[in-house]
């Protein structure tokens, strides 16, 4: 913290990134609408908007890392902000995914006449829950154990072990995504095959999307741990990634039980 400062709070410098992020989002939405309707230049505007948005995310987070890790602006009281912010964010994500699981259980508990009054719907061949779906569940739970190993290693000051643990976490996450891709490729139904296909791909797809986001989050944490950014006293970014990862791996139990197992027998 700067010596002349008389308080523990971080008064941020003026930054161009909020307005550049807003312009990127505007270009992305307008470009997206143009692309989905027959307007010329829609794809170009959409691509430029996305590139601009990704660039803003990169430079904004780069600035935050500089302020926190190199300039020491993230005091204990400042760290409370992202810590408290992560909790409602993860709760909202849980609610988002539960809406899709509920959609599936709602349709399966009272199957309509249009799908033959049975679940899985008439004519739908489902995946065997004892194969890839079951295998993917311990894979994700093991990666949850690996991230806890990384957390304890950081707290114990064992930098190398923490890097190994994060490599194990990310590797298991990539194996999970690979198996999920294989499962989608082999699925005997598509997203357009009745309410079963729609709810199955929407719920498991959004869960898989969250796994990919969490994997990217953990890769960044692994790189930062390798570079020596994370210390036993200050590793809020890692803690947020670990919480997110536990949310992703615990939530996996719900589609496994309600969609693959209960919905597939």
């Amino acid at each position: 913290m700067i010596e002349s400062q008389r308080h523990s709070y971080h008064l941020v410098d003026p930054s161009p990134w909020p307005i550049s992020g807003s312009l990127g989002a505007l270009a992305t939405t307008v470009g997206g609408v143009m692309y989905m309707h027959p307007f010329q230049g829609g794809a170009t505007l959409l691509s430029l908007g996305l590139i601009f948005l990704l660039y803003t995310m990169f430079v904004w987070w780069r600035d935050v890392l500089r302020e926190s890790t190199l300039e020491g602006h993230h005091t204990k009281v400042v760290q409370l902000g992202p810590r408290y912010g992560s909790i409602p964010f993860i709760v909202s994500e849980v609610m988002f995914l539960f809406a899709f699981f509920r959609a599936s259980s709602h349709s399966s508990l009272a199957p309509t006449v249009e799908i033959g009054g049975i679940w899985p719907p008439k004519g739908i061949g489902v995946l065997d829950p004892r194969e890839i779906p079951f295998l993917n569940t311990p894979i994700l739970l093991s990666s949850g154990a690996a991230v806890t190993w990384a957390h304890h290693a950081i707290l114990a000051g064992k930098e190398k072990r923490a890097v190994y643990a994060l490599v194990a976490t990310v590797s298991l996450a990539l194996v999970f995504t690979g198996f999920q891709g294989m499962e989608y490729y082999q699925a005997p139904f598509t997203i357009s095959d009745s309410i079963y296909g729609s709810t199955f791909f929407l719920a498991t797809g959004f869960h898989g999307f969250h796994v990919i986001i969490g994997t990217l989050f953990l890769i960044i944490c692994g790189i930062r741990q390798y570079l020596g950014h994370l210390t036993k006293e200050h590793h809020v970014g890692f803690e947020a990634a670990a919480w997110y990862w536990h949310f992703v791996d615990v939530v996996r139990l719900f589609p496994f039980v309600s969609i693959y197992w209960w919905g597939g027998i």
């Binding site: 194969e131 295998l135 093991s142 154990a145 806890t148 190993w149 114990a156 194996v175």
Partner: peptide, 27 residues
Amino acid sequence: SDEHETAKWEKITYLGIATCTVLSIYN
């Protein structure tokens, strides 16, 4: 201590990886 917990979770992770490897080969 954190050292003890690190060692414990390392073992749990290796156990999980071994289980998943066996299950993958079987599947």
